[in-house]
Computed example of a mutant assay.
Amino acid sequence: MMKNQWFDGVMHCQNNAKAYVVLTVMGSVGSTPRAQGTKMVVTEDRIFDTIGGGQLEHLSIKKARELLTLKSQSQHVEYFPLGAKLAQCCGGATHVLFEVFCQHVNQLMLFGAGHVAQALVPIISQLPLNIVWVDSRQEMFDEVDKSELQLPTNVSALIAEDCTDALDEYPVNYVLVMTHDHQLDFELVHKALNIDSVEYLGLIGSATKAKRFRTRLAIHGISAPMLEKLVCPVGITDIPGKRPIEVAVSIAGQLIGLLNKHESNESQNSQAAWLQTKEIAKLL
């Protein structure tokens, strides 16, 4: 059985939120390396399966990676004569369909490495997120190490003397604040609300804390539309319980809802492009 088949490549890219191109051999004339319908997957650093090797595959991979640099979902058909131009002995000609899939990777910054965060990270690290986990206390990450929690490749632990500085160093669109210090929580929330790219800001705490923070934030110049980004208490309110794992599941559920809403919007935006692809395929 062939290793790294194209469908394995699609699963790999979707599970790791990597952009990829599916190449499909479409209409062919004469002798060609692979049959119509043969597929392969190309990423910026890997290939899965083959459409026959040789110059056809070499130039197809090159074209796929050129399309990836555009960072947008698209469909493109390329014509390849397999005679003298490509120095392949097949002598036929083929069309290759390139379908570009840009996986949107959400950047999440998690402040605080306490018990809730330690329960939360193993769950949300399985989602298409790049996570920067921030705390000023070395001992908290030492505790994580002792628990033998292996941080996945999409989670980076950052020890910062001033946690608010981390918001200047990394691009971010999701923020979770759950530190040990209410004043630090406030400073982080205030700064995050002033970052245009932040779409969602979850703050752990009670309804009383939420009301107090909203009043203080308004005094510090945060407008009502900006305050709409703030979710406090964070998490799905229908999930009861105050144990760390229960709170973590509640927060993870809310994030899953946001991510699926994001993917649904992207799917709607690309529907017209998919219809165009079907029309192209009919002509080949």
Score class of each variant (00 low, 15 high):
F7C: 00
H12G: 03
Q14V: 11
A19V: 08
Y20P: 01
M26P: 02
V29S: 11
G30S: 09
G30A: 05
G30E: 06
T32S: 06
T32D: 06
T32A: 04
V41H: 02
I47R: 07
D49C: 05
I51F: 12
Q55G: 00
Q55M: 14
E57L: 09
S60Y: 01
K63L: 07
A64M: 05
A64R: 09
E66G: 08
L67D: 03
S72G: 10
Q73K: 07
S74G: 07
V77R: 09
Y79L: 10
L82P: 03
G92N: 03
A93L: 03
F98W: 12
E99M: 02
E99R: 04
C102E: 09
C102L: 08
L108D: 06
M109F: 00
L110S: 01
G114D: 04
G114P: 00
I123C: 02
I124N: 00
I124D: 02
S136F: 14
D145L: 11
D145S: 13
Q150W: 00
L151G: 00
T153G: 04
N154T: 05
N154P: 07
A160L: 14
E161R: 10
T164A: 12
D165G: 00
E169D: 13
Y170T: 04
Y170L: 04
Y170F: 15
N173H: 04
V175T: 05
H182Q: 10
L184D: 08
A192I: 07
D196H: 12
S197A: 13
V198G: 05
A207D: 13
K211M: 13
A224I: 12
P225K: 04
P225M: 09
T237K: 14
P240D: 11
E246D: 08
V249F: 10
Q254W: 06
G257C: 13
L258I: 06
N260S: 08
S264G: 08
E279M: 13
E279F: 07
A281M: 15
A281N: 02
K282G: 00
